[in-house]
């Protein structure tokens, strides 16, 4: 049996095997690796569990939960719908939550505006979300929608912030290799000045 113990140098070679160069100080070792890897998303993605209409609806819902802004793109750029659809294809319980919830949304829209959620006016979409996105329910009829929206929001946010664009949006710079650890003075000063302790 080969000895699985390795030196740091060997490990860094492994870390850089994907073509990334690890400099002495903090650097996101994974950007190149991540870019090289095909994410489970993109124009060619074929839904595995949801039918196309449901998938498109989920994608639109995701972009209402995490829209694009001046800093970063929307949930669809993070593969949120693909992530959820993929897991729905692996877990019937989850699949039922999402198909049930998406049907409920469409049904509600049909009864109110005679259209699907996807085809509804943005103002009507927003009006529905405002009824199901908060802890306090305007009326009991929204309870199933509220329950579904919690799942949708949690999983869309999970997908977004674990994606390259979401991590960049937060400013995560870690899980790389550093030769030494230090704490930037500007971060300490910024916080201390704002704290009860003062600079």
């Amino acid at each position: 049996m080969s000895n699985p113990q390795v030196t740091r140098r060997e490990a860094l070679v492994v870390l850089t095997a994907a073509g990334t160069v690890v400099p002495a100080v903090a650097q996101h070792t994974h950007e190149a690796l991540a870019a090289a890897k095909s994410l489970n998303q993109g124009a060619n993605y074929k839904p595995k569990a949801l039918v196309k209409h449901q998938f498109d609806t989920l994608k639109a819902l995701g972009d209402l939960i995490i829209p694009a802004d001046a800093t970063s793109p929307a949930a669809s750029e993070a593969g949120a719908a693909e992530f959820i659809d993929y897991l729905c294809s692996k877990n019937d319980e989850l699949n039922n939550i999402f198909t049930g919830g998406l049907f409920w949304m469409d049904n509600y829209m049909q009864s109110k505006h005679g259209t699907t959620f996807l085809a509804a006016k943005k103002a009507d979409q927003i009006a529905l979300l405002d009824n199901i996105a908060y802890r306090k329910l305007p009326s009991p009829e929204f309870a199933p929608g509220q329950k579904f929206f919690m799942w949708a929001r949690n999983m869309v946010m999970d997908a977004y912030y674990t994606s390259p664009v979401g991590m960049k949006d937060l400013g995560f710079m870690g899980n790389g290799a550093m030769s030494e650890f230090s704490v930037p003075k500007e971060a300490v000063d910024y916080v201390m000045k704002r704290s009860p302790f003062g600079a």
């Binding site: 994974h30 690796l33 991540a34 890897k37 994410l39 489970n40 593969g79 992530f83 993929y86 897991l87 692996k90 999970d158 997908a159 674990t162 994606s163 390259p164 991590m167 899980n175």
Partner: peptide
């Protein structure tokens, strides 16, 4: 990183 696997 989480997104290196489909289920994250």
């Amino acid at each position: 990183l989480p997104h290196e696997v489909d289920h994250r």
